[in-house]
């Protein structure tokens, strides 16, 4: 069980999504991936993809215009 931070600040769509998709493949079941984003459209497509793949997802607003998408690799 580890927590991995993925810094996607300053990256525009669809870079955060593709980075998150690549990163989660390297993780083990039970690991948590935290995607840091500041592009509001990534706040839509990253959680959408993760939920569709059946992972547990939470979005947290950490600052003005900054979010963390917390994805638990459940399977």
């Amino acid at each position: 069980m580890k927590e991995v931070m993925l810094d996607c600040f300053g990256e525009a769509c669809p870079v955060p999504l593709v980075k998150a998709q690549n990163k989660i493949k390297e993780l083990e079941i039970g690991d948590v991936l935290i995607v840091q984003i500041d592009h509001s459209c990534a706040m839509k497509n990253v959680p959408e993809w993760a939920r569709k793949d059946g992972y547990n997802v939470e979005v947290e607003e950490v600052d003005d215009g900054e979010w963390e998408v917390i994805i638990e690799k459940t399977k």
Partner: peptide, 18 residues
């Protein structure tokens, strides 16, 4: 819209590639 949602942020340029 972004001010009302308090989502305004001046983004950093990450790399020369960008």
């Amino acid at each position: 819209a972004t001010l009302i949602a308090s989502g305004f942020k001046i983004k950093k340029i990450k790399s020369k590639k960008q």
